[in-house]
Structure formats: structure tokens, C-alpha cells
Write a protein that binds this DNA or RNA. Structure first.
Lengths: 342, 342
DNA sequence: ATGAAAGCGCTAACAT
DNA sequence: ATGTTAGCGCTTTCAT
């Protein structure tokens, strides 16, 4: 209200209420106002109340960019995921976000679209924000991005995979073991002519290779493989199943790289009056929230995505606060959920 | 390498490479280094090259918190959505994120979980980051949150709905018109005993009320209503359909508040050998990416979510850059996609 | 085209 | 328990 500002160089900032305004109104020094807001136990009840009143009256919202700059603690966590639309990572992101929010952290979301070029751009953009931690969906392949990440010194958690050489922390499971387990599950169900509908990524590759190995070990003919590349949709699942039915008609079981692909395979099987699971077993991967309730209910590989997200958030926050994480590499495992389709 | 730092109060920052380091290495002043990076056309080729080399050699990544503080431009956009797991907003968020990223903006994601208490907390947290714009999934009800948002002066775009009193910009469509259109569509197909499976939110309410109106207008008996509250799953869709079949057996058409609910309804119908669409028509809402390829393919209301996201991003960025948005209120409409189930 | 000075809004470090 | 001072790393303003 009563301002007498005189300066040669003027450079009014955002115009928003600042800590100084609040302090002046409360009749205290800025640092006391800061403490009243962030560490109320360090301030006498009397002054605390005056500051609180001033905050309420002005509608002051602290500028976290300024705070972050001053304290080198941004209270930001970045997540880098390949895709956000109906992806297996959704549950993980939601859990991550919720856990972070409850402790006053904010989530920045970056999408790499399965492109490593874009991922590198994204990483620089992310590092520039100086987040207190970075969540990665997957394990980062060696390259410029990985190097820069390590150089940044920011705590990193890689997820949804296992590797002997993590950047930092790791919360995942073995894709190889899944390939093995699924093949053996199907074989034990009496299936003889296995197939696989796989995505183009490297994790799908490891599952497929293990699947092939287990099949070879059992003395069965090698599986028919359809690689759908980046097309993880129901549509491509249908097309893939059509191809299997046409080119490898003896097939009696298919392992799909994702639940969506499995749903597509199932759709095509129904379309062609193939009886599931006797004539054709179908398994998915991911156990996205709705496949349990469909008819037939999908037999699939379940990953506890929520647990991964929650744990990752905790680890990142612990590290941001200087604590050491006692078990920085965790295998959360997986389970085969037996339902109607296999 | 050769440092001789002497100061009484030491407070080493993050320890990362700063613009000063780059400038020193390039033999220019910090401001020249800054210009070389941000406005290269203002710097002579000679110095530009020296700065670029220094950046490459040091692996310098600008600290955007510092830059944001100095310029009052964070290059951050915040999105507030109720949920991220298989929600109709996913496509919008992805488009928003992609459009922003291409212009150097980053997305912060906040989840309100359909709770207005949480939404208020979230809003303060978001405002504290001083984003250049805020994306809202839905329109914000009057209240403390809305007031604070308006007071913040940050550009806001509300979406997925229409209102005569937007906070700022608005990109949506009429839920009332959808209720009307769906009812008339079903009626015109010869359906006489309509029902609705709705969620608990206010938008679903408006669709339902309009649906009831249109039915009344046509002289048909009022629809049987099942309110699933916050349970937007396939599971609750199944349960709701079971209830309809038990309590209102004459029902020959159901409009569902979401595609997932519709899928559940369809599942139950199949389970009870109800023939779709003749005996029972089912319509969804949202046209999530996979319902088109299922068997039967779902007849549903399609919203161009991608367009909303892309437009919202553009509007927010324009406003952040001081441009005026010529048409700040847009009705993107909707369409009924006729497929197998109605 | 380049640079010096000032300061964005906050908190860490050092008093008292 | 409260205050003073000096930055955090950058960009604006003004000068050359």
C-alpha cells in the first residue's frame, strides 16, 4: 500500500506476492516468515500466528523456483516413459505420483515415444529442471543419454527390468524368467505348438528368446513368431493371430507381448470360431486393470506395477533427502494369473 | 581445474557446471554465453563457436530454475487430471505433452483423484511452481481452488466440458447435447425401454438428465438408472448390467458413462446370452483406442481428445508468449460412431 | 555485437 | 528464537 521505491534499474518481477510482502505485513524479517512457513516448530507461537495471518490475508503461494534455486532442492521428480496411453506403466506412474504428492513432491512427465533420439532430447530438458530424482520406465541402454544422466549426479531409478549394470537404483523383474515361465506353463498344460506375438522392443526380445529356449529344451518344435514392431494395439493382435492361423495352423498356444495384443488375438480367435483355451490358449502380459473382468478372462502375467511406483518414489525421495537406500536393487518378481484363456 | 576460491561464507551450490564456467572456458562474459545458447543470431559466429565448444566439452545443461526465476518464464505447463489409469483423458494428455515438448515446454502432471479437497492442495502446489499455463481436465467448480487460480494470473484452459463462466480459456463440448443425441439415436433405432449406467460425477449427471429429457419428450417410459459412483471399471459395468437385467428386464438399450462400463455391460449381456444389439443395444462414451477392434465393436460417442490436447497446448503457449488467443472458447463437438452394439 | 550491474524470490550460513 | 548477509544461476536493463 505505502510504497516508496526508488531505483535506477527497475525490473518488476512477476508482480506476485512475495515472502517479503508477507514478512512486512507480519512485522517480521523475511527469514522468520520463511521459517514460519517451512519449519513452524522453530518459530514462537506469537510470530507464527502473525505470519500465518499474513499468508492467509495475502493468499501468498511460495515461489518454488526461487526456493529450489536457493536450496538446490527442487522437490520435483521426473518420470520418463515411452507412452502414456493404455500402457502397462500407467499403474506405476499413478502410484509414483500419489506417493510423491503425499510428501510434497511434484511429478514431471516426459514421453520418449520409444524413440532414443527423442529420449536424449527429453533427458536434457529434464536434467535442466534439476529434479531431485528421475524415474525411468525400463533400463536405459548405453549411450549419450545414459552418460549425461550419470554425469548429472541426480538419483535415478530404473524399473520394469533387471540388469547387472544399473545407472543407480533398480526395481524390476526378469523378462527372461517370464519367457521361461510362460513357456513351461503352456507346455505343462499339454500344448505342443507354441507361438508368440511380440512387440519390437528389447525386453520383448528377451522374453521371446527365453520362451524359445524353454520350448527347445522340452523338445518341441520352435515357436512361430509374429513381430508387430511398435504396433501394440488390439488391431495388430488380431492381424497377428490371423497370420498365425493361416501360416501355422497347428498352433495351440500363443504368448502375447501385451494384454492388448492378447485381446486382439482372442478377438480373432472368436471371429474364426477357434475354441479358447482348448483349441488355442492365449496369454497376455501386464494384467491391465480390465482384462480380469472380460469374458473370457485373460490368463496373463501380472506385474505389481503399483508396488514398483510406490517403491521407486520412496527410494528417490530417500536419496533426495540424503538417506542411503539399503536395498537399491529389488526384484519384485511376477506371477502368472490363471484365468480362462490358458 | 585451477581454482582459487576464497570466501568467508561458503555455500557451494549444486556443484554442477554453470554458465559462468562455460563463459570462462570460452573466454567471454556470462551474458554472451547466455545469448549464444538462447539467441545465437545475436552473437558473432566466432564467439558462438567458442561457446558451443565449451558447452560440448563441459556437458553444460542450463539450470532452468535459475533461468525461470530470472525471466519469470518457467516453460512449464501443469496438467490437473482426475486419474491417469485408462482414463478418457489419456489421449488428450499425450497430445498436450507432445505439442508442448516440441516447443521446449515441460509437462507437470497432477492427479486429483476426483477429490476436491485433494484438488485444492494440488492447485497450491502447482501454482507454487509458477507454470506458464495450467491445463484442467474438466471445468472447475466455484470454490477456493478456483479463486486462487484466478488470483494467480496464470493462463488456464478448462477442457472436456462447456460452461458460460470459464476461468479463462475453454476447449470442450456439450455433455447435455450428448445425452440428447444418444437418446435420440437409440430411439430412432426403435428402442423403447432405455436405461443408463452412469458414473457419479457432475458431467455424467448432465448427460443423464438430458437423456431422460429426450426420452420423456419422445413419450417413452423414463430410463432405468444405475449409478456406479466412482467405480468406472468393467467389473462395475457387468454388475450394473446384471442389475438392469434383473430389475428392468424389458430394457432394450443402455447408454454407459464410459467405454469401460460399456465393455462390462457387454460382457454380462454375453454371459446371459442376451443378443446385442437386437435384444439389447449398448453404447459407450469416450471411444478409447481399443473398443473399435473388439468383437462386437462398440458403438460409442467419440471425442477428439487429441485435438483438445493439441489445441490446449497451443493456446497456453500462445498466452505464455504474450499473444492473444483469438478464439478462446471452442466447442470441438462429438460424434456418434456407429459400430456393432447399437 | 558485447559487457557490467542489478536483481528474480528464496534459503543457508553465520551471528546474536 | 530471530535477524543479517550473501548468495543460488540465470536474464534483464542499461551502457558501450
Amino acid at each position: 500500500m505505502s510504497d516508496s521505491e526508488t531505483s535506477k534499474r527497475t525490473r518488476r518481477g512477476s508482480g506476485a506476492i512475495t515472502l517479503h510482502d508477507v514478512a512486512r505485513l507480519a512485522g517480521v524479517s523475511p527469514i522468520t516468515a520463511s521459517r514460519a512457513i517451512n519449519k513452524p516448530e522453530q518459530v514462537s507461537p506469537e510470530l507464527l500466528k502473525r505470519v500465518e495471518d499474513a499468508v492467509a490475508r495475502t493468499g501468498y503461494v511460495p515461489n518454488r523456483m526461487a526456493g529450489g534455486l536457493a536450496s538446490s532442492r527442487s522437490k520435483l521428480i521426473a518420470a520418463v516413459v515411452p507412452s502414456t496411453v493404455i500402457s502397462v506403466f500407467n499403474e506405476t506412474i499413478e502410484a509414483l505420483n500419489n506417493t510423491l504428492f503425499d510428501s510434497g513432491y511434484q511429478l514431471m512427465l516426459g514421453q520418449s515415444d520409444y524413440s532414443s533420439e527423442r529420449e536424449e532430447l527429453l533427458l536434457d530438458s529434464v536434467i535442466g529442471r534439476r529434479p531431485d530424482g528421475i524415474f525411468l520406465a525400463g533400463v536405459m541402454q548405453p549411450g549419450k543419454g545414459r552418460t549425461r544422466l550419470m554425469a548429472s549426479g541426480i538419483p535415478v531409478v530404473e524399473t520394469w527390468d533387471l540388469t547387472p549394470t544399473p545407472i543407480d537404483m533398480l526395481i524390476g523383474f526378469s523378462h527372461k524368467d517370464i519367457g521361461l515361465a510362460v513357456a513351461n506353463y503352456l507346455i505343462q498344460k499339454g500344448k505342443k505348438h507354441l507361438a508368440v506375438i511380440r512387440a519390437g522392443d528389447e525386453r520383448a526380445d528377451r522374453r521371446t528368446v527365453a520362451y524359445q529356449e524353454a520350448i527347445a529344451q522340452a523338445g518341441l518344435p520352435p515357436p512361430f513368431v509374429v513381430n508387430v514392431g511398435g504396433e501394440r494395439s488390439i488391431h495388430s493382435g488380431r492381424a497377428a493371430m490371423a497370420k498365425i492361423l493361416a501360416d501355422a495352423p497347428k498352433t495351440d498356444a500363443v504368448f502375447c507381448s501385451s494384454d492388448l495384443l492378447a485381446l486382439g488375438a482372442l478377438t480373432e480367435a472368436r471371429h474364426q470360431n477357434i475354441e479358447v483355451p482348448n483349441q488355442m490358449a492365449v496369454m497376455g502380459f501386464g494384467d491391465v486393470p480390465f482384462v480380469a473382468d472380460m469374458l473370457p478372462a485373460l490368463t496373463t502375467v501380472r506385474i505389481n506395477g503399483g508396488k514398483i511406483g510406490q517403491l521407486a518414489a520412496q527410494y528417490l525421495m530417500d536419496r533426495a533427502e540424503g538417506k542411503t537406500v539399503s536395498e537399491p536393487i529389488v526384484d519384485v518378481g511376477f506371477s502368472i494369473i490363471e484365468r480362462d484363456t490358458a
